[in-house]
């Protein structure tokens, strides 16, 4: 199925490239004339709500500063298109580049060239190879997965039957959220009775959960690598009237998704995977003013559960 999606998206890309000439959608903060600094922002794919949220966070933070103007470009999940973004920003002589890269290796060289041209680069969420960038801002999926594991261990009292619905296991976030979770429950009597790859997709998660429900009469908790996955699992359990027999835990905690589900009592907990949009703009301002910034900023995460969701969650240590 994945190959089929790949095939169709390949066709889409070929088609789009042929007919629209890779024209980026540009959008700038509305501060005509007043802007002193232009920032180019290249987002790898606006098909994911989390990345839409990242752009929204960058825009909201930049709107606070009339001296900033941000140009947004969407690479539509195409590495070469994103490479072109960087080159376009360099020839347009922007003052700073924000990039959330699709993948490390092919974008390392173009970013190094931008640095050589004297343009500072902030890398968001996914890292590049080497050290030819100004600052990396990202969250730690292993840490978040571990926090989820520890929360689950505590909530279940150290034992229970758990279903793990994994994100795409060929992707690093999926691997990290899996690995961290296993570290978090290590040594307890928690048993993973069913695990399946739901490829981050809600319909897939619902399908896999139906299979888990068909096989096992007792399930204590479902841990999904993202909130749509946990929601899909909830709907599957609800359809067999078993949703009250188990808990549901997700990751990402977008305001309109995971956090809303916790408020509604659908999920028992969700762990925030922060976008870093606000931190990126703050760091950009420091760089533009000539202040020094750390090479790497690891974002903190928050847990939202029934006890704290109305207070805006609790910061994780």
């Amino acid at each position: 199925m994945q190959t089929k999606t790949l095939f169709s998206s390949l066709l889409t890309v070929v088609f789009l490239a042929g007919f629209t000439g890779c024209k980026p959608s540009t959008d700038s903060s509305d501060t005509p004339g007043a802007a002193r600094y232009t920032i180019g922002m290249s987002q790898c794919n606006l098909g994911e709500p989390w990345r839409v949220q990242m752009n929204a966070d960058v825009k909201a933070a930049a709107d606070q500063h009339p001296e900033l103007k941000v140009i947004f470009k969407d690479a539509q999940n195409d590495t070469l298109k994103q490479r072109a973004h960087v080159e376009e920003f360099v020839s347009a002589k922007v003052d700073l580049i924000l990039i959330s890269p699709k993948e490390a290796a092919p974008l390392t060289e173009p970013v190094a060239k931008a640095m050589a041209a004297g343009i500072p680069v902030i890398v968001l969420d996914r890292a590049l190879l080497g050290d030819q960038f100004t600052c990396f801002i990202g969250a730690d999926n292993v840490k978040i997965g571990r926090a989820a594991g520890e929360w689950i261990r505590q909530t279940l009292g150290g034992k229970g039957k758990v279903v793990e619905l994994k994100g795409l296991m060929t992707s690093v976030p999926g691997q990290d959220r899996h690995q961290g979770f296993r570290q978090g429950i290590a040594g307890s009597q928690i048993e993973i009775i069913f695990e399946a790859d739901m490829k981050w997709l809600e319909p897939e998660a619902r399908k896999e959960m139906e299979s888990a429900l068909a096989r096992f009469d007792q399930i204590d908790l479902v841990y999904a690598h993202n909130d749509p996955g946990a929601h899909g699992a909830y709907l599957a359990a609800q359809a067999t009237a078993r949703e009250k027999q188990m808990k549901f835990v997700g990751i990402d905690a977008l305001p309109h998704e995971g956090v809303a589900y916790v408020k509604k009592g659908i999920l028992d907990a969700t762990f925030q995977y922060p976008t870093g949009g606000a931190e990126a703009v703050a760091t950009a301002l420091k760089i533009l003013r000539g202040e020094s910034v750390p090479k790497k900023i690891v974002l903190g995460s928050r847990v939202f559960d029934k006890a704290n969701v109305e207070q805006g969650g609790r910061e994780l240590p």
Partner: peptide, 12 residues
């Protein structure tokens, strides 16, 4: 660009 969901305008 966002999912049209039941979580809408601060309400569910």
């Amino acid at each position: 660009g966002m999912k049209v969901s039941r979580s809408f305008g601060g309400e569910f």
